[in-house]
Amino acid sequence: MGWSTRQLAELAGTTLRAIPHYHEIGLLAEPERRSNGYKSYGVPHLVRVLRIKHLTGLGLSLTQIAELGAPTNTPRRRGGSWTANSPRPSNGSNDCVRRWT
């Protein structure tokens, strides 16, 4: 059983109005509906709303988030490994870009 719109908003720490707004502007996929017609949100919806909230907290607009699109390269637990795909930055920082292969 999934979550209602209200429950999803509460879990994500956002407003009840934000969820349908994200649907309207194409940031959040519509969930399946229960036999009573109510929406039934799952974990992927919660993760997406949390991601939207995090990115807006970093200063991105909803338009910029929409331009980023939905994540399609989420690492999986099975197979592959993390590898550095760029050399250490010249500024002496230990930061490097990593990718899942």
Rank of each mutant, 00 (worst) to 15 (best):
T5S: 10
T5Q: 10
T5L: 07
T5R: 10
Q7V: 01
Q7E: 12
Q7R: 08
Q7H: 03
Q7G: 00
L8T: 01
L8E: 04
A9V: 06
A9T: 07
A9S: 10
E10I: 09
L11S: 00
A12V: 12
G13P: 11
G13Q: 06
T14L: 09
T15P: 02
L16M: 08
L16Q: 10
L16N: 13
A18D: 14
I19K: 05
I19G: 05
P20V: 06
P20Q: 06
H21K: 05
H21W: 14
Y22H: 08
E24L: 08
E24F: 02
E24M: 07
I25P: 03
I25T: 08
I25C: 05
I25M: 14
G26E: 04
L27H: 01
L28V: 07
L28W: 13
A29C: 09
A29N: 14
A29V: 11
E30C: 01
E30H: 14
E30R: 13
P31T: 03
P31Q: 01
P31L: 00
P31I: 00
E32F: 09
E32Q: 12
E32D: 13
E32T: 11
R33G: 04
R33W: 04
R33T: 14
R34E: 11
R34V: 00
R34Q: 12
S35F: 00
S35I: 00
S35W: 01
N36W: 14
N36R: 10
G37Y: 08
G37D: 03
G37I: 01
G37L: 02
Y38D: 11
Y38I: 01
Y38Q: 12
Y38K: 08
Y38S: 10
K39N: 09
G42W: 09
V43E: 15
V43K: 14
V43Y: 15
P44H: 11
P44F: 05
P44M: 04
P44R: 09
H45N: 12
H45V: 04
L46E: 03
L46H: 03
L46N: 03
V47Y: 06
V47A: 14
R48V: 02
R48S: 07
R48C: 05
L50C: 13
L50H: 01
L50S: 02
R51L: 15
R51W: 15
R51D: 08
R51H: 12
R51T: 12
I52V: 14
K53A: 15
K53Q: 15
K53T: 15
K53E: 13
